[in-house]
Amino acid sequence: MTPVLATRGLDKAFGAVVAAAGIDIDVPAGQRVSLIGSNGAGKTTFVNMVTGYLKPDRGTIALDGENIVGLAPRMIVRRGICRSFQIPQLCVELTAMANMLVACAAAEASGLSSWRAPDDDGRRERAEGLLERFGLQRYGDRPVSELPGGVRKLLDIAMALTRKPRLLLLDEPTSGVSAEEKFPAMDRVMEAVAGEAATMVFVEHDMDIVSAYADRVIAFYAGRVIADGVPAEVLRDADVRRYVTGAAA
């Protein structure tokens, strides 16, 4: 079966800094993959290359077998790769609901249906359903500027899910979320992702979250993959302990 995401020989350098070197990763459908590594190891560069924000110097990225290197971010989104952000990227003056409607409507903002009202065509129902799934329905009427950080983080992820993506990339979904809220928040995310039948790749620094929620862990160091496997194995790996978890702890 064709993997949802397949990268071959991805290289990327910023001047003398190597951010990616020969990255080969296959992600089969339905898997929950966690990317770990210290700051500057190349995790975010990988996410940025897959979403089209950065163009790799060499190598290919395939979504369901089709190369997507060179496509603009919005074209990659339309093909089914959506992402959330380490710092939530929201329209802070609009309400949470309006943000969700923007997310539901944005990809249709060309063509004839773009002249219709935002809450037509089932968009409002879709937005309400997702807000409910994330437990955010009571924040719908509030401007984002008034919402706490944890809520913004979930809203950011909910927006990335509106298009029923094939592949969902989350950049540090629990950063900025308080320790006691982390697990409930991740429970919500996992449930919603399962409900949308999406494959998921998430960057994470908290090893408890990684072991609890990932089917597979890929460890990065200096732009290379140094370990790849089930969480228990990878977290025991000598290199990972030296270069990743040791530094992260």
Partner: peptide, 22 residues
């Protein structure tokens, strides 16, 4: 309309709007 709402979103955060496929 959809376009009107997305235009407002562009004012606030054009980057996000691109990442929503517009």
């Amino acid at each position: 309309s959809v376009r009107g709402l997305v235009t407002l979103a562009i004012q606030a955060n054009p980057l996000r709007v691109e990442y929503l496929g517009a």
